[in-house]
Simulated scan of single mutants.
Amino acid sequence: MTTEKPALRPVNPQFSSGPCAKFPGWSPELLIGALVGRSHRSGPGKARLKKAITLTREVLEVPATHLIGIVPASDTGAVEMALWSMLGQRGVDMVAWESFGEGWVTDVIKQLKLKDTRTIKAPYGELPDLTQIDFTRDVVFTWNGTTSGVRVPDASWIPAEREGLTICDATSAAFAQNLDFAKLDVVTFSWQKVLGGEGAHGVIVLGPRAVARLESYAPAWPLPKIFRMTSGGKLSAGIFEGETINTPSMLCVEDYILALEWAQKLGGLSALRARADANAAAIEAWVKKTPWAHNLAKVPATQSNTSVCLTLDADEAVSKKMVKLLEAEGVALDIGAYRDAPPGLRIWCGATVETSDVKALLPWLDWAHAQAAA
């Protein structure tokens, strides 16, 4: 155990799980060409929004069968848009194993007040029994539990032939994990996670089955304007070509485009995944030789490579003191466990984080634990 302060510090101490670190080399000067002061409905404005959609398809490897739209209110807005617009035609299985999945359960049961709802849950650190899911019903789930560090290992549990829709909150998985779009009818995420974009904007990806639902089913409840994806019973195609429902920040759009271009130069999706995998592997190697730290995800195949959550053999006061010590030293910012999660640490390992910074952080964790537990 390191009791003296390590000599090496992370170059970038930002390990927040959202908003996440900007990509290496980012600076505000890169945004000099942003269309600030221009209408998003102008020709150049729509062109930049369309470019963001096109680059998203290329980097995320979204098949041509699926539509991509930029929507309001981050990933939350994108998920709510799907829930309010598509659910209610048939029963729904809500699958949850951490706080954000629990939030969607609350919205469906207490806000939409759907009666034919089943909740399939697991405690933090575990996945539910996915064999319990009935795919004749709609299914809502998170791919990667941002506050538990538990992810589904793949999409093998989702049948290719199914009657209901699969609605997937993929906000801390997109660009770092292998999303099987053939098995996913709706996918949502935000720019602020793996690509380190700015907040307030979400992305919704619709497969053909989701489009068919939108054009054949109208929910019984009124829909706010920002949730409406159809007009006159037909899909509002403009949403998926750069005509956003409400006013986006063109500064944030430009920032997202820069991140996507950085990802392309890096080598695309496989390179992004490799960076996240290397970051998570560095922490896991440290955990294996550290008796007082444990990965909250109990099964290796379900351990996240982005939101790595750790529990400690100590009370909550120790982890909180560690967080304060590390922030005071300027070596790790915003790494406390989520407020609803078990006490511990949460270290973001997405693609914008350098593995060298993760490795430089680890001796500091030893030092902070020695100080906090003394």
Rank of each mutant, 00 (worst) to 15 (best):
45 G>P: 07
46 K>C: 07
47 A>P: 01
50 K>Q: 11
51 K>F: 02
52 A>N: 04
53 I>W: 05
53 I>A: 13
55 L>F: 11
56 T>Y: 04
58 E>Q: 14
58 E>G: 05
59 V>F: 14
60 L>S: 10
63 P>E: 08
64 A>R: 14
64 A>Y: 08
65 T>R: 15
66 H>K: 02
66 H>R: 08
67 L>A: 15
68 I>M: 03
69 G>K: 05
70 I>P: 02
73 A>S: 13
75 D>C: 12
77 G>M: 07
78 A>Y: 05
79 V>M: 09
81 M>P: 00
81 M>H: 05
82 A>V: 06
82 A>T: 06
83 L>S: 05
84 W>V: 08
85 S>V: 08
85 S>I: 10
86 M>G: 01
86 M>Q: 03
93 D>M: 10
95 V>F: 07
95 V>C: 03
95 V>T: 11
95 V>R: 12
96 A>G: 10
97 W>S: 08
98 E>F: 08
98 E>L: 06
99 S>N: 04
101 G>P: 08
101 G>N: 04
102 E>Q: 12
103 G>Q: 06
103 G>D: 06
104 W>V: 00
106 T>Y: 07
107 D>Q: 07
107 D>H: 12
107 D>N: 04
110 K>D: 02
110 K>I: 07
111 Q>W: 13
111 Q>S: 15
112 L>V: 03
112 L>S: 10
112 L>H: 10
114 L>W: 01
117 T>F: 11
118 R>D: 08
119 T>K: 13
119 T>Q: 14
119 T>Y: 09
123 P>F: 13
124 Y>L: 11
126 E>A: 13
126 E>Y: 15
127 L>V: 14
129 D>C: 09
134 D>N: 15
134 D>L: 06
136 T>Q: 14
136 T>I: 05
137 R>D: 05
137 R>I: 05
140 V>C: 03
141 F>G: 00
141 F>E: 00
142 T>S: 14
142 T>A: 12
144 N>I: 06
144 N>S: 12
149 G>D: 01
153 P>I: 12
156 S>W: 02
156 S>K: 12
159 P>Y: 07
160 A>Q: 12
160 A>D: 13
160 A>H: 02
161 E>I: 10
161 E>Q: 10
162 R>L: 08
164 G>P: 05
164 G>A: 11
165 L>K: 08
165 L>M: 03
166 T>A: 04
170 A>S: 13
171 T>C: 09
171 T>R: 04
171 T>A: 07
172 S>A: 10
172 S>G: 00
173 A>W: 01
173 A>G: 11
173 A>Y: 00
173 A>P: 01
173 A>F: 00
175 F>T: 00
177 Q>T: 01
178 N>H: 14
180 D>I: 12
182 A>P: 02
185 D>I: 10
186 V>M: 07
187 V>L: 07
187 V>C: 01
190 S>W: 06
190 S>M: 09
191 W>H: 06
